[in-house]
């Protein structure tokens, strides 16, 4: 599926959260949305997921608007993992992940073998099999995040939008989750992921979109987007760039006082 945002603006009160954003996200690629706090990353992701009505501009899915496509249909094709995702009730992990199959189930129908297989794959992929029988209120923040990611993966959608899925994770599981998202893209789905960690963003994403003040400041290959000028302008930082094992890496290093 191809998601296309054209002339997208979002206004809350007098504040413009997004200004004239035009972007497209396709199948099989992993795009990182980066930018400082308040740049509009989450707002953009919510608009891409059809969860917010833009003040101006459009979002289309393979050329169709949300209204034309229908929310139920979109739910089978697009999975969304919210930033502050949390389950209100202390349900079991396997039951949480099974919720990911709700968009695929017909009214009154039970779970099909395909549903259960998808749930099993999602649990395995997120390293959550051991946690399957545990209640959410007995998990750590990172374990809970993985379980919630498993719920989104269980949709097996063509497009996965994830808002800071690695924020609460230890380094092992950060790397694990990023590899997992790469796998999802490698299998042909589109992945759009909001990230704060520039090192992970540079290492794992095919493309980066740098937002600042609700505008797209730069978009393209990680190395180009994470240029010294862009980092200084958007984040007021200087980063170290290097190469290790044949891959570029970027390491935020120093604050720059805004001139």
């Amino acid at each position: 599926m191809r998601i296309e945002a054209t002339g997208l603006s979002c206004r809350v009160g007098d504040t413009l959260l997004l200004r004239d954003v035009g972007l497209a996200f396709g199948a099989g690629e992993m795009v990182g949305l980066i930018g400082p706090n308040g740049a509009g990353k989450t707002t953009l992701l919510r608009h891409l997921a059809g969860l917010a009505v833009p003040a101006a501009g459009t979002v289309t899915y393979d050329g169709q608007s949300l209204r034309a496509l229908g929310r139920a249909k979109l739910a089978r094709r697009l999975a969304y993992l919210a930033q502050d995702a949390e389950a209100q009730w202390p349900i079991r992990v396997d039951q949480l992940v099974r919720l990911g199959r709700l968009p695929h189930r017909r009214p009154l129908a039970g779970e099909s073998a395909a549903d259960l297989a998808a749930v099993a794959r999602a649990l395995a992929a997120t390293d959550c099999e051991r946690l399957a029988g545990r209640r959410l209120d007995t998990l750590s923040g990172g374990e809970r995040m993985r379980a919630l990611l498993a719920r989104a993966l269980a949709v097996e959608a063509e497009m996965l939008l994830a808002d800071e899925p690695v924020a609460a994770l230890d380094p092992y599981h950060q790397l694990h989750t990023m590899e997992l998202l790469r796998d999802v893209a490698a299998r042909g789905a589109g992945v759009v992921v909001v990230l704060h960690d520039l090192t992970l963003a540079a290492r794992f994403c095919d493309r980066l979109v740098l937002l600042s003040g609700g505008r797209v400041m730069a978009a393209g290959a990680p190395r180009a987007v994470l240029s010294d000028d862009n980092l200084a302008a958007a984040y007021h930082i200087r980063a170290l760039h290097g190469e290790a094992e044949g891959a570029d890496f970027t390491l935020p290093w120093q604050r720059i006082d805004p001139a």
Binding site: R46, A49, G50, L51, R71, A72, K73, L74, A75, R76, L78, A79, Y80, L81, A82, D84, A85, E86, A87, Q88, W89, I91, L96, L99, L102, P103, R105, L148, R151, V155
Partner: peptide
């Protein structure tokens, strides 16, 4: 019932799961 199950994951997630 199903919508309430979905809603236990929050408004945004429930809406993204196709519930109006």
């Amino acid at each position: 019932g199903r919508a309430l199950d979905g809603l236990s994951l929050g408004d945004d997630t429930a809406a993204s799961m196709g519930f109006d």
